[in-house]
Design a protein around this nucleic acid. Structure first.
Length: 465
DNA sequence: CGGGAGCGCGCG
DNA sequence: AAAGCGCGCGCTCCCG
């Protein structure tokens, strides 16, 4: 039994936080490297992109004004509400979400669900997307370059609740990646001539850790066999009969092998069935699977499934998928309950390295406050453990960096983006460094699941992965 | 005109 | 009514 003070609170019987302090200390040399180097930017390319975006936004704004009959500011949710709800009378398939101040929310999730009712919806979405990219990144970042044309960020390593790093002035952990224009922004960052960018990330690390921490046998087996987790969840959650179960698991296996570059022969029926299963069953199951790690409820899942192009499901159906997930992986349910109980009875949870998060709110008598804390309790050990693994890898990778430097190679640690590390490395050894880095990210910790990491090498950031 | 709340959205 | 975890940051709107 150990009694210590943590955050000014006396607590009994919790893991030794000594390892955490060591972890945080050991990753500092690499953070120093991040600060020292910065990312090389392509001014020319930024400038070109800025012209293109400006033109498209201007054009869209004009067309929106014609459509509406007045000058709508897409960045003003008041304007958007006035146009779409009051003047055009549009409605959402799942009803409206309210903001804290009691207004109907006009966020992109809701707008996407109203697509097709009126052309103004798509225009507003597109204007929003482009304005965000232009104002936050394309017009802003080039002003922040140093004399060498490199962009430096500041990482904070003591500011988050889960041990994650945060990045500010500017934030280089949220550079766009998901859209076509976003990738063009990433392509404005590059390695210097003679160098290449290397990135390596931990695959599905949070789901892997859910398996490791809970010890759930079904999930461990699934990861060991390399089967598709979301298909397994789907067939259980939707209560498919045995024959269909086996059929779809076989199809998911074929899809995986095909992705790995194997030649796979599909019949026409199989193709059609897989495509339908993927959209109608696997997508909801996948969405729920991620949501569960955040404590998502049925109504949250319902919105999310629609948002990602899945079917409109009833609340009952969503509840069914969530409980189906827990039936497929009962160990996860028990583990989640254990975190909830730690939060409710002791006001704290901790991760696999002993990092503690105090959650006194979980003891609150106000249900909304307590529920929020319980969600945080379920997520923290997973997010925090993932971060611990990356910090271990950062410490070990620093030795790798020194070894390469002794052989006169250029190696510049550039960024940590939560489950990913980015380096700039001389081109003659980039591939080799990447493989060594991957081995460190896998080997730095021993989990019940053999986890994996994947790397990528390219000249420009947007070409990675 | 600066500060801050509220909203929205980029990333993992 | 509430609504999914962790961040940083830009714009709008309102206040002093």
């Amino acid at each position: 039994m150990r009694t210590t003070l943590y955050g000014g609170v006396r607590i009994v019987d919790h893991p030794d936080p000594g390892n955490v302090y060591k972890l945080d200390l050991q990753c500092l040399p690499m953070i120093y490297e991040f600060h020292r180097h910065g990312l090389l930017a392509d001014r020319e390319r930024f400038a070109q992109l800025e012209v293109v975006l400006n033109a498209e936004i201007l054009d869209l704004n004009e067309r929106l004004a014609i459509e509406a009959g007045w000058e709508v500011n897409a960045a003003s949710s008041d304007d958007v509400r006035r146009l779409l709800i009051r003047e055009l009378g549009l409605s959402a398939p799942l009803g409206f979400q309210m903001t804290r101040s009691g207004q109907i929310s006009m966020d992109s999730e809701l707008l996407r669900s109203m697509r097709g009712q009126h052309p103004a919806v798509d225009m507003i979405l597109r204007i929003r997307e482009l304005r965000k990219l232009l104002n936050t990144y394309v017009a802003k970042l080039p002003q922040m370059l140093n004399a060498e044309g490199r962009l430096r960020t500041t990482f904070r390593h003591t500011s988050t609740e889960t041990g994650r790093l945060s990045s500010e002035n500017p934030n280089l952990q949220n550079i766009p990646a998901r859209t076509k224009t976003g990738i063009e922004i990433r392509n404005c960052f590059r390695a210097a001539p003679g160098n290449l960018l290397v990135s390596c990330d931990l695959s599905q690390i949070e789901m892997v850790l859910a398996g490791h921490l809970s010890g759930d046998e079904n999930m461990l087996r699934a990861f060991r066999d390399g089967s598709d987790i979301h298909t397994l969840t789907a067939v259980t959650a939707f209560c498919l009969p045995d024959s269909e179960r086996r059929y779809y698991i076989r199809l998911s296996d074929m899809a995986r092998r095909e992705e790995n570059g194997e030649a796979v022969v599909w019949t026409e029926d199989e193709r059609r069935d897989w495509k339908q299963f993927k959209q109608q069953k696997r997508l909801p199951a996948k969405t729920v699977g991620f949501g569960i790690l955040y404590g998502q409820t049925a109504s949250g899942a319902q919105w999310n499934i629609v948002d990602q192009g899945g079917p409109v499901l009833s609340i009952e159906a969503c509840e069914g998928i969530i409980s189906g997930f827990f039936d497929a992986y009962p160990g996860i349910r028990n583990w989640m309950r254990e975190q909830e109980s730690r939060a409710r009875t002791r006001g704290m949870v901790w991760d696999m390295f002993g990092r503690v998060r105090m959650l006194p709110a979980a003891m609150s008598e106000i249900p909304r406050i307590a529920r929020k804390a319980v969600r945080e309790a379920g997520n923290m050990p997973i997010q925090s453990s993932a971060q611990g693994i990356i910090k271990l890898a950062m410490a070990e990778a620093m030795e790798l960096v020194k070894r390469y430097r002794r052989q006169n190679h250029v190696v510049m640690p550039l960024l940590q983006i939560h489950d990913e590390l980015v380096f700039e490395v001389s081109e003659d050894c980039a591939e080799c460094f990447a493989a060594d880095l991957r081995d460190i990210m896998i080997g730095c910790v021993d989990l019940k699941v053999p986890h994996s990491a994947s790397y990528s090498v390219a000249e420009r950031w947007g070409e990675l992965k």
